[in-house]
Computed example of a mutant assay.
Amino acid sequence: MILQKNWNLFSVNVAMAGTGLYQLSRKIRQDYFSDEKETAPSLEG
């Protein structure tokens, strides 16, 4: 039985999961817990 351990790939996956969860928490806080009304920027010149 061959067991391969790629700790560099594992650490990158853990970092990506942490970053993704952080970004998801930021989006949820902005969408559901923000009381401020945001104004869309005007694209007309």
Results as ranks from 00 to 15, higher is better:
Glu36Ile: 01
Arg29Cys: 02
Met16Ala: 02
Thr39Lys: 12
Asn6Cys: 02
Arg29Lys: 12
Asp35Glu: 12
Ile2Phe: 11
Gln4Glu: 13
Glu44Arg: 11
Glu44Phe: 14
Glu44Val: 14
Thr19Ile: 07
Ser25Tyr: 14
Ala40Tyr: 13
Trp7Gly: 07
Thr19Cys: 05
Met16Leu: 11
Asn6Val: 05
Ala17His: 04
Asn13Asp: 05
Asn13Ser: 14
Glu38Asp: 09
Lys37Asn: 03
Gln23Asn: 10
Ala40Gly: 05
Leu9Ser: 02
Ile28Lys: 14
Ile2Tyr: 07
Ser25Pro: 00
Asn13Lys: 08
Ala17Glu: 12
Gly45Lys: 07
Tyr22Phe: 15
Ser34Lys: 04
Asp31Asn: 15
Thr19Arg: 02
Thr19Phe: 06
Trp7Ile: 15
Val12Thr: 04
Lys37Tyr: 02
Phe33Cys: 04
Ser11His: 05
Gly45Gln: 07
Lys37Asp: 01
Asp31His: 12
Met16His: 01
Phe10Cys: 03
Glu44Ser: 10
Tyr32Met: 04
Arg26Thr: 15
Asp35Gln: 10
Leu24Val: 10
Glu44Gly: 05
Ser34Gln: 09
Asp31Glu: 13
Tyr22Cys: 04
Tyr32Leu: 06
Val14Glu: 01
Asp31Ala: 13
Asn8Asp: 13
Ser25Leu: 12
Lys37Leu: 03
Tyr32Cys: 06
Asn13Glu: 12
Leu21Asn: 09
Leu24Lys: 12
Glu44His: 06
Asn8Ser: 13
Thr19Ser: 06
Lys27Tyr: 13
Gln30Pro: 00
Met1Asn: 08
Ile28Ala: 11
Asn13Ile: 01
Phe33Trp: 11
Ser42Phe: 11
Arg29Glu: 08
Phe10Pro: 00
Tyr22Gln: 05
Gly18Val: 01
Thr39Asp: 06
Phe10Trp: 05
Asp31Met: 11
Phe33Asn: 03
Ala17Cys: 10
Asn13Tyr: 01
Leu21Asp: 07
Val12Pro: 00
Phe33Thr: 00
Thr19Met: 05
Glu44Ala: 13
Ser25Asp: 14
Ser34Leu: 04
Ile2Met: 07
Arg29Pro: 00
Ser34His: 04
Phe33Met: 08
Glu38His: 12
Lys27Met: 11
Ile28Glu: 11
Gln4His: 10
Ser25His: 14
Asp31Phe: 06
Arg29Asp: 08
Val12Trp: 01
Arg26Lys: 15
Gln4Asp: 08
Asp35Asn: 12
Asn8Glu: 12
Ser11Leu: 09
Met16Pro: 00
Ser11Asn: 09
Glu36Lys: 08
Gly18Ser: 06
Leu43Thr: 06
Gly18Trp: 02
Leu24Asp: 09
Ala15Asn: 11
Val14Cys: 04
Phe33Gln: 02
Lys5Trp: 03
Leu43Val: 06
Leu24Ala: 14
Ser42Tyr: 09
Met1Glu: 13
Ser42Arg: 10
Asn13Gln: 15
Ser25Phe: 13
Gln4Gly: 07
Ala17Pro: 00
Phe10Val: 04
Lys5Leu: 10
Glu44Leu: 13
Gln4Asn: 10
Trp7Arg: 13
Lys37Ala: 03
Lys37Arg: 08
Gln4Phe: 08
Gly45His: 06
Lys5Val: 14
Val14Asn: 00
Gly45Ile: 03
Pro41Phe: 15
Ser34Pro: 00
Ser11Thr: 04
Asn8Ala: 15
Asp31Arg: 15
Tyr22Glu: 03
Val14Met: 06
Arg26Tyr: 13
Ser11Met: 08
Ile28His: 06
Leu9Trp: 01
Leu9Asn: 01
Leu43Tyr: 07
Lys27Arg: 09
Arg29Trp: 08
Pro41Ser: 14
